[in-house]
Design a protein around this nucleic acid. Structure first.
Lengths: 136, 136
DNA sequence: TAAACTGTATTACAATTATAGTACAGTAGT
DNA sequence: ACTACTGTACTATAATTGTAATACAGTTTA
């Protein structure tokens, strides 16, 4: 499931953070689902358990998971850890960074808008489909 | 102009890279404009010239600036360094990351689309204004 | 209660980052 | 030619960061 790319450049623990954030955002794992124990995931990825622990610590800090020491690590309830101002600031910063990157890659604003909105539409359809299939 | 935040977490040389990329994308500096000499910028920011040099090296690698050793460092001509596939891959990855972040901050897709398109519209207006004012 | 699991803390080591100093080579203007 | 500027290269050093190995403490389950 989670994969490490040694040539990625970004630290291993951040690669884990990114992928788990993606799994949470996409609904692949949900509230109170248990994450693999640090030793299990570490063995799968052939890395040190501490590296996984560091990733979990970071995710806990961001409020996406919670750990019960001795018991396990679980996906946290969707909740608001930041003020509206802070949330808006974070997302606007990300948007700004995306636009800068796009411009420096010679995308026009129109092209960027098109690619972005297409992706959003696709996800939106996926999510409404899933809503309709909720039978568990 | 360029500012270093010691509490930013990201390395100084990357903070410089990010800010210069922004200045290029926003049109604050343009083709063949000269960047401050490494020693000058280093003195302004109270850092080592080597750190600035490292930032310039990174920007040159990304094709955004060019250096004429002995002469100075300049903003490069907008050109395509990557294949269309590569450009698309990079920008789609950034978009994906933005959407994940937004979802984990409890923004709906609609909210994200709204914030994003508002920002894009604002920039678009700025740029068309500048086009109209080009008198240099 | 005992065994097998969980995350955590401590320590050590390697890689990266930042700084500093020095020297070098190319360019520009006088 | 000379001077003052440019970026570059190199070495060394310190601090931070990322990873690893080991031991520890709490929880679960039988």
């Amino acid at each position: 499931m989670i994969k490490i790319d040694p040539n990625d450049g970004t630290p291993i623990y951040l690669q884990i953070v990114r992928q788990i954030k993606y799994m949470i955002a996409s609904g692949a794992i949900r509230e109170d689902d248990e994450l693999p124990p640090v030793r299990v995931l570490a063995q799968q990825l052939v890395i040190n358990p501490n590296t996984v622990a560091k990733a979990y610590r970071e995710l806990e800090f961001q409020g996406l998971i919670y750990t019960r020491p001795g018991a396990g690590t679980y996906v946290a309830k969707r909740r608001i850890l930041f003020s509206d101002e802070e949330r808006l600031r974070i997302i606007q910063e990300k948007i700004e960074s995306l636009i800068v990157e796009a411009q420096n890659l010679n995308f026009t604003l129109e092209e960027l808008a098109k690619i972005f909105n297409e992706r959003l539409t696709k996800i939106y359809k996926q999510q409404t489909e899933e809503k309709g299939n909720e039978r568990d």
